[in-house]
């Protein structure tokens, strides 16, 4: 019983990070209908920027978020103004051009990192990297708890912004019905730039947090991109709660596997990938849609 409780706690803790990671993809997809394949590259780049701020200025990685997040927001806006905006517009599915462009961007970022920082494995060490606190009979690393706290704060902040500000509501309006947003006077190009900035900032927040938990190289982020895909396929791309549910489901499955089976943790990626395939076969429109059709059938009965 105690074991199950700690599995649940671990799942919730990783779900926060997963949701932050996936939300960056979801907000971009919602507004622009493109899949940001460069997401992993942006997470990796943020990890290196965090490292640089840490070694140069001794800045704590969590504090450096105050610099990294706005910096990457601007970078994202710049990417939109210079590159993404030139893609053919319209259409309800991501275009081949957008996939190729963003995949190419990922490769460029990766190679840039090789040139600037080399291929050696890097890690960020803080005074609390090795400390842990006991919870429910297990010990949890302080960085992991901080990551959870920051994730929850940034998601709540984003949610508040999306619900309360005119800009945030414009983002939701474009996501829910683009034409109606245009007809209300929303400047779609501006909202797209903001959305790509936000998505990039969330990739960076996730990347910075990952850098406090894992060592990294310029190839870093690939397996996390896979997890993010898995989450958005599970939860659907269009709702906040969907992303949260997807993140929790993935984290639960990973933690249950680790606790109750002898599958080594190095197979975790295989688990999320199998899950991705499974969901695509069983519920291609995502779990929320599946639940909705179940409850509709139940009501109809």
């Amino acid at each position: 019983m105690e074991r199950l409780a700690s599995v649940l706690l671990s799942s919730v803790l990783s779900a926060g990070l997963y949701a932050t990671m996936a939300y960056g993809l979801a907000v971009i997809y919602g507004v622009m209908r493109i899949i940001n394949l460069a997401h992993a590259g942006l997470m990796m780049l943020a990890a290196y920027v965090t490292l640089a701020l840490n070694t140069r200025f001794g800045l704590d990685p969590f504090l450096s978020l105050l610099v990294v997040a706005p910096l990457f927001f601007c970078f994202g806006v710049l990417l939109d103004l210079t590159l993404i905006r030139r893609l053919p517009q319209g259409g309800n599915a991501p275009s081949m051009q957008s996939l190729l462009l963003l995949f190419g961007l990922w490769l460029v970022l990766q190679n840039l990192a090789y040139v600037v920082w080399g291929g050696d494995t890097q890690a960020i060490l803080t005074p609390y990297t090795m400390s842990s606190v006991p919870l429910l009979g297990e010990r949890y690393g302080v960085p992991l708890l901080l990551v959870f706290g920051v994730s929850v704060l940034s998601l709540l902040g984003l949610n508040f912004m999306l619900r309360r500000s005119f800009l945030g509501r414009a983002i939701r309006a474009v996501t829910q019905n683009r034409d109606a947003a245009l007809l209300s006077g929303v400047n779609a190009a501006r909202i797209s730039a903001v959305a790509f900035g936000l998505g990039t900032a969330f990739a960076a927040i996730a990347g910075t947090m990952l850098s406090t938990l894992y060592a990294f190289t310029p190839d870093f982020g690939r397996s996390f991109l896979l997890k993010a895909f898995c989450i958005i396929v599970l939860g659907g791309l269009e709702s906040f709660t969907g992303v949260a549910i997807g993140a929790l489901v993935l984290a639960l499955i990973e933690n249950l596997m680790a606790a109750y089976t002898s599958i080594p943790t190095s197979f975790q990626d295989a688990i999320s990938f199998s899950l991705l395939v499974l969901v695509l076969v069983v519920a291609p429109t995502g779990l929320p849609a599946l639940f909705r059709s179940f409850s509709r059938r139940a009501v109809a009965r």
């Binding site: 005119f166 509501r169 414009a170 939701r172 309006a173 829910q176 019905n177 034409d179 109606a180 947003a181 007809l183 209300s184 006077g185 929303v186 709702s239």
Partner: peptide
Amino acid sequence: IVLIPEARQLWPGMSVRDNLEMGAYT
């Protein structure tokens, strides 16, 4: 120049108040 489009095209996941307020975006 304002168009009320075919088939309403409301934002289904937003409250009626938010739908109306978003109409006053300019």
